[in-house]
Design a protein around this nucleic acid. Sequence first.
DNA 1: GGGAGATTGTCAACAGGGAAACAGTTTTTA
DNA 2: TAAAAACTGTTTCCCTGTTGACAATCTCCC
Lengths: 146, 146
Amino acid sequence: MVKRVRIKPSIEEQALIRLMRTGDRMWRASDEHFSKWGMTDNHYNVLRILNGAGEPISQSEIGRRMLSSRANVTKLVDLLEGRGYVKRLACGDRRVNLVALTEDGAGFLETSLEDVQQHASRSLEPLNRDEIKTLFRLLGKLSGES
Amino acid sequence: MVKRVRIKPSIEEQALIRLMRTGDRMWRASDEHFSKWGMTDNHYNVLRILNGAGEPISQSEIGRRMLSSRANVTKLVDLLEGRGYVKRLACGDRRVNLVALTEDGAGFLETSLEDVQQHASRSLEPLNRDEIKTLFRLLGKLSGES
DNA sequence: GGGAGATTGTCAACAGGGAAACAGTTTTTA
DNA sequence: TAAAAACTGTTTCCCTGTTGACAATCTCCC
């Protein structure tokens, strides 16, 4: 005699689980992909954020943009700085480290770009272009973005 | 003079990032939600899997169903067993622990069910029913499920 | 001015999860 | 039947990220 509860999973529950699992799978695949450059998806994200900003920004601001804690940004920047992809600059506010993309960092972004975009394409391969756009839109709505 | 690379982010890249971020946000919200019962989303998942199976299953099988490592399942079951929600049974194959839902475990599922489903509904609140179904379908296609 | 309160970056401690190594058991194969 | 291969659960170690505390600095308001 096995204990059991009669449960009718709601569509919301099922969708949420699928969302979390798929996201998790994508993180792992992405991390594994970036490991060939000795870094994490998140390290790469820092570089992209700096490049997108177009100017040096503070560590706190980086953390805000990538939804990560300040403490973690310290570690991410430590590695990138050690690799010469990034450097910390002093600025008027002496609490703040402005982080700037170096020439090496920009060079890395340039040479890795195609490979990174291919990885994204392959990851979403089962979906056609319209479906990808729909997914993008729904996720945006879910997060209150755009 | 700031170093910068001209990058045109592909729609695939943007969708992938949004998928990973949203998934991550949902994990955190979910974990925080379950923390009021002193457990993790994953602990709860073990209970749901056992309930869904309708019979005791091995730890390896649990790991397969929730895409988690055997090592981690050991820890998850340790906690649940300590709490009396689950028990390990010996079986014919002496390598295997069959894990069974206890009466307490079933009781917990029953009392927490509505709360859990409400959490899922709230998490997906910005989407209407059709959009949730579409999201579910697209994620399934992406993962090669159903 | 001069405190009270925010902010910033860092560090230490902790939690969750994966990979590898292991010993005990099957199962397969020669 | 004996040996090799595969599987299971556990332990150990590691990696990533968070929280909380801290000192240094800045801002605001009296």
